[in-house]
Design a binder for these strands. Sequence first.
RNA 1: GCCUCUGUGGCGGAAUUGGUAGACGCGCUCGACUCAAAAUCGAGUUCCUUCGGGAGUGCCGGUUCGACUCCGGCCAGAGGUACCA
Length: 780
Amino acid sequence: DVLARYKRMTGHEVLHPMGWDAFGMPAENAAMEKKVHPGEWTRANIAAMRDQLKRLGFALDWSRELATCEPDYYGHEQALFLDMYEAGLVYRKESAVNWDPVDMTVLANEQVIDGKGWRSGAPVERRKLSQWFLKITDFADDLLNGLDDLKLWPDKVRLMQENWIGKSVGLKFRFTLSQPVAGQSQLHVFTTRPDTIFGSSFVAVAADHPLATALAEKRPEIGKFIAECQAGGTSAAEIEGAEKLGFDTGIACAHPFQPEWELPLYIANFVLMAYGTGAVFGVPAHDQRDLDFSRKYDLPVRRVVADGDTTDAEFEGDEAFTGDGALVNSRFLDGMAVEEARAAVIARAEKEGWGEGTTVWRLRDWGVSRQRYWGTPIPIIHCEDCGPVGLPKDQLPVVLPEDIDFETPGNPLDRHPTWSKADCPQCRKPARRETDTLDTFADSSWYFIRFASQPDDKPFDKAEAEAWLPVGQYIGGVEHAILHLLYARFWTRALNRMGQLDIKEPFAGLFTQGMVTHGTYQAGDGSWLSPEEVQRNGEDWTMIEDGAPVTPGRVEKMSKSRKNTVDPGPIANQYGADAVRWFMLSDSPPERDLPWSEAGIEGSWRFIQRLWRLIDTNETAEGEDKALDRKLHQTIAGVGEDIEALSFNKAVAKIHELANAIEKADASESRNTAIRTLVRLVAPMAPHLAEEAWAQMDEDGLVADAAWPEADPALLVEDEVTIAIQINGKLRDTITAAKGISKADLEAAALASDKVARQLDGAEPKKVIVVPDRLVNIVA
RNA sequence: GCCUCUGUGGCGGAAUUGGUAGACGCGCUCGACUCAAAAUCGAGUUCCUUCGGGAGUGCCGGUUCGACUCCGGCCAGAGGUACCA
């Protein structure tokens, strides 16, 4: 809000909208617990939050307010879904999905964290279901390359997206097996290091690889081993501690360059079915996992990239060499650099027909089907004869039914007596409506476009949307680094490909802000206590009610589970919106967490009062106060720079300094001007006070519409400067000199200092360093 | 494990390119005003000190006339994460 108000005052057209990402699980949970309809619950929350935002005086364009749970929003989303369906960016696939047994729904890969549902925390199960997917992988390369142009995004977020997309370039090739398994005589593996192919000691497949599954059917000991592998956890810590386990199948794989060179085929717990082909060849000398595995199962460790040693002696030690170097012990590759050898092996594989250069991505297509009620209905009809058919757009929006029940778990749309009945748009025969709804991340993937343009008859108007987009300054928590920000980038690209939008990137500038935190308190029995229930007596904390001892805990993100939330309503009532705003801006830089404190807001409240008294007691007077003029103009320039950089805490500090200077100054025309200007400087942060003062000063219109004051460059520089006098880098004295004084004069002035003379004690300085207008350092 | 970020008074935090460390605020101390308190105003507030000074930005070392800032090595905390072949 401060940035929006500032940009407005500096002559920019500003679009600062507000809306509600309102579909999703919390509304359904509330419905189940409190027996209210999700829509009713959601709209009541929206009303409450809208009041809070208005009370804090945010300069929002409420005419563009939207809520994703209303048909006039999600109906347009359905139209975009149909466009993507037509453009081949949506497909339906029977696939193993991540099933959250508590929330009774499917989760996207991005929503599975350490093998658990991101919301419920329940261990995710694998299930086969027919699901809708969006082809985000079509844009994998572009999403990756586009990151380079997002110069105004934090490096951290770009890096996280890069890792998530996970591009690996390498060779996919085939091993011939000594005996066919389930009718297959070949095994596909993927590697990014084809150059090390002569260093391989074994081949391994994932425990859930089809080959392993097939073998397990005939050999129970393999089934037992597979079960053992799947029992292990998938969190980073568990993986770290987990031992490499392998099962030697007794099957041999023929080395592609020498068929009689046979590599043992293992089933191994560290190979992932979800990545590459689910099978690898192990080169222990140059891969840590392979080395750990080989040491355990006593497999040969051959050096093929020189690590200083170029002999064919067995590789020593327990640390794999993954660096660059010249190839050794590798026949026709010997002497080549890693990169050159890589290309040579790929070329040979392609020429001889046993493999091809490939790029493998970690990124998967975005599964968007959710078996939930409170989401955007997917506008598809399933017809027995025609298959899935997109609804004609004139039948949109597909509106959610109101009469639903949440007594049984699962999707209420599925159980609704009539809602799912519909005729096939193609053959007119009775058919069934899709009862899955869209992942709520779809709702937030294009709302910024709808903010920019909101016609009734279509999702947006191209020219109107492009006039505002991309978003100049996007602000959100770092928790959106992957999910939301990647989906929105994809959605924008999809619209771009379909010719609906010229831009590819939705957000030019991104800022990840911190969260509001508060101390936590626990009673003797370990239960959490809210800040209103406790009080401090000196060093100790007790319960207000009965004086029982309280254990203060660490400062954490405000959350209902820790009970450390603070209701902004009463605070805004007590101190006023401007004091609340001032406090939120004043101390912590916005990228860091903000520790909420009652004491802090009182300080802000006092300053707001002080500002008012200062403005109120302003009087017209004659005379110039050069020092105050300078302070004023330095503040104008500094506050502007700080707001542009979102360093609100520094801007606040500069305004404090100016206020202090004005209070100390005698009445003058300069002082009068400074006070009148101060009103505009605080306007973005304390708008209510500023408007009142503006009106009282008999200025026209609103200060919100006023121009930001201009700094006079001539007044930004001092004509006198304080020079530090150092001896051996230690400060000994300071002197005041005219700005621009010559080096020689400055040196002479420094040497004339009593304190310098006393320190030198008659000795001659060895050397004198003079930094003009800054300091003199005497080396003794 | 790996990657990223962070580490400065009692607290939140400032310190352009290496150039007076601790701006600004909170808190605290003392004083003024008051019968008293609140509010307000003024002074002080990194630590030690024999009042000359000395030490000091997580720790150890280096570069430099000069290091919170640059380099090397540690330690601690937060966040991210992929056994990715």
